[in-house]
């Protein structure tokens, strides 16, 4: 019997058991000590990974809070001059720019992504699998490539930088993120609900609108808010296509400004006032992103509770 076992090809589980027993046969006291030390090292890595977060947030509060005021949020910027170096202007133009660009992009991206999510969740075909793979790969592509895309098709065609080109890039960024969330949420809806709707004689479109999407809503809203949080902070694609504007302007076909872009431009400035402004905007931006991502959790949790 033993001979037969010896002739078997090496079994990974047996092999692992052998390794464990070998290590276990070393002195227990020493091993306990090593284990304690290693546990300490693991704990240390956790502390290390939280240090940057603490440092970023602390600096944001230290340098950013003093800048924030109602005027800072609503007024247009002041160009610093040699005589007037310390004047911190406002970021009203960038607030409006971000609102217009990300708002319109979300309005386009959400319905489109929900349709694709329905398609991916409800069909099993090679085309669907391929689309799913492409969508996931798109999620990981560097956002600046979408800036290049929007530049080639919009800026070169219209011969002008514009908020519209930024909207195209940001929409393209949001769609795969929301699609993924939508597909997961729709797949999570129990089959029995769909079948019940169909059995009552409802059309597919009616079942999707009246049953599946409402049940999947918490997941959908989480996806939308998270993608918005990502979009609000995107700088690279906007940098290539939006141009520059120092005035509040609601027209997306003009050049515009945006919050993350202002941080990037201010950070390169030698003026202390501009750097201060950059920290102020960064604080606004991080608060917006935190509200969106924590809000998504809160809303989702609350809706789930109500559904029960």
């Amino acid at each position: 019997m033993t001979d037969v076992l010896m002739d078997l090809p090496p079994d990974p589980i047996l092999e692992r058991r052998r390794v464990i027993q070998e290590t276990a046969s070393k002195k227990i006291g020493r091993r306990q000590l090593n284990s304690r030390i290693l546990s300490g090292v693991f704990g240390l890595t956790l502390v290390l990974s939280l240090i940057p977060l603490v440092s970023v947030l602390a600096t944001l509060i230290k340098r950013g809070v003093g800048v924030i005021s109602w005027g800072f949020l609503t007024h247009d910027p002041i160009q610093p001059t040699l005589i007037n170096q310390n004047a911190v202007g406002g970021i009203g133009n960038a607030m409006v720019g971000s609102l217009v660009v990300d708002g319109i992009a979300a309005l386009v991206a959400v319905p489109l992504a929900i349709l694709i999510g329905l398609y991916l969740a409800e069909t099993e075909s090679r085309t669907a699998n391929f689309m799913r793979a492409i969508t996931e790969i798109m999620t990981g592509l560097p956002s600046i490539l979408l800036g290049v895309f929007a530049y080639i098709y919009i800026v070169l065609t219209m011969k002008a930088y514009s908020g519209f080109a930024a909207i195209v890039a940001i929409t393209f960024l949001m769609v795969p993120v929301i699609t993924k969330a939508a597909e997961t949420a729709i797949r999570g809806v129990p089959h029995t609900l769909r079948e019940a709707g169909l059995a009552l004689g409802a059309r597919n479109s009616k079942v999707s609108r009246g049953v599946i999407l409402p049940v999947a809503a918490p997941g959908l809203i989480t996806g939308v808010l998270l993608s918005l949080a990502r979009a609000v902070g995107e700088t690279a694609p906007i940098l290539l296509v939006i141009g520059i504007s120092g005035r509040t302007d609601w027209n997306p076909f003009h050049q515009m400004s945006a919050l993350p872009l202002d941080i990037y431009q201010d950070s390169a400035s030698g003026y202390a006032s501009q750097q201060q402004e950059a920290w102020g905007i960064a604080l606004v931006l991080v608060v917006a992103v935190l509200v969106l991502s924590l809000g998504s959790r809160f809303v989702a949790a609350r809706m789930r509770r109500e559904q029960r």
Binding site: V56, T235, I263, Y264, S267, L285, V286
Partner: peptide, 14 residues
């Protein structure tokens, strides 16, 4: 969740 440009700013000044 922290935007990339904020990390840049943090890197630059901290």
């Amino acid at each position: 969740a922290v935007p990339s440009v904020v990390y840049g700013l943090w890197g630059l000044f901290v």
